[in-house]
């Protein structure tokens, strides 16, 4: 941990923030185990410093870059977003980081770059959960280029004003608040500009359940969880709230899906 310098933004919501112990103690990060408290228990084994990210594919600048050359730590900002997990619970988290669009633009993607794929670091020694094939490791996720360049897409390096704890995806993770939580890939070690829609881990595991887009959608019942409402973590144990289309971010993102059938393209 360690305090970060950052500036405030207008990206905020009125609901109370989820207490720090819940944000950092209740995590889905299967690379460290399938229990919700496994990441908090075991993620400290991960070496996050030094950290480098490989940039591959259709871009003018590619290669291996130190984290400090990917994320400009002098321009950090805070954004308070709601995180909606597909398991029908949500949190409100003050992230610290930089807009994803600024990071991607610096690598000068070419016109062939129609999608971006992200990959989580994989180290069987430090990430004990990967010794067991819960998913086909390494974890991969992806966005359409316009989604990646959307103003809301964010790369976080901290939360609650401090360096990101390992269980939350240190040292750098994606935050796409209008999509279910598993799209917000953690501990990113590769970014690939590609021309075809990339594979994603959960889609590969259960395509009927997890689509490529995975936009929060209360109108599409997931085969496991009705998505019409969600449990609020960290507050009153019985508290629920109605789930909003695009997790409440329709104003900023709905235009990207104009004319698309969002049940079919889930």
């Amino acid at each position: 941990s360690g305090a970060l310098d950052f500036s405030a933004t207008d990206y905020t919501i009125a609901d109370p923030q989820t207490p720090y112990p819940a944000v950092t103690g209740y995590n889905n990060f299967y690379e460290f185990g399938i229990g919700k408290d496994d990441p908090a228990r075991y993620a400290s084994a991960l070496t996050t410093n030094p950290w480098s990210i490989e940039i591959e594919g259709h871009a003018a600048r590619t290669g291996r870059f130190a984290l400090e050359d990917v994320v400009d730590f002098s321009t950090l900002e805070e954004r308070i977003y709601r995180l909606r997990c597909v398991e029908a619970w949500s949190m409100v988290i003050p992230w610290v980081g930089v807009p994803l669009s600024r990071v991607l633009a610096a690598f000068q993607p070419t016109s062939d770059a129609r999608y971006v794929q992200f990959e989580t670091h994989l180290d069987r020694d430090e990430m004990r959960g990967t010794r067991f094939p819960v998913l086909d490791w390494p974890y991969v996720e992806g966005l359409r280029m316009d989604e990646a360049m959307n103003e809301l897409a964010f790369l976080a390096v901290g939360l609650y004003g401090e360096v990101l704890p390992n269980q939350n995806g240190a040292p750098v993770r994606l935050v796409v608040p209008w999509k279910y939580g598993y799209k917000s890939i953690k501990s990113i070690s590769k970014i690939r500009f590609v021309s075809e829609q990339p594979e994603t881990s959960w889609n590969r595991s259960a395509p009927r359940e997890y689509g490529f887009y995975s936009n929060v959608n209360p109108n599409r019942a997931h085969p496991r969880w009705s998505q019409s409402s969600e449990r609020v973590i960290g507050g009153n144990v019985f508290a629920r709230r109605d789930t909003e289309m695009f997790n409440g971010y329709a104003e900023q993102v709905a235009h990207m899906y104009a004319g698309m059938d969002l049940i079919e393209n889930h």
């Binding site: 112990p21 103690g25 919700k36 398991e87 619970w89 449990r231 019985f238």
Partner: peptide, 13 residues
């Protein structure tokens, strides 16, 4: 009772 408990952050789950 508002005391520390062993049910985690999602007690219903």
């Amino acid at each position: 009772n508002g005391q520390a408990h062993g049910l985690g952050f999602n007690p219903i789950e």
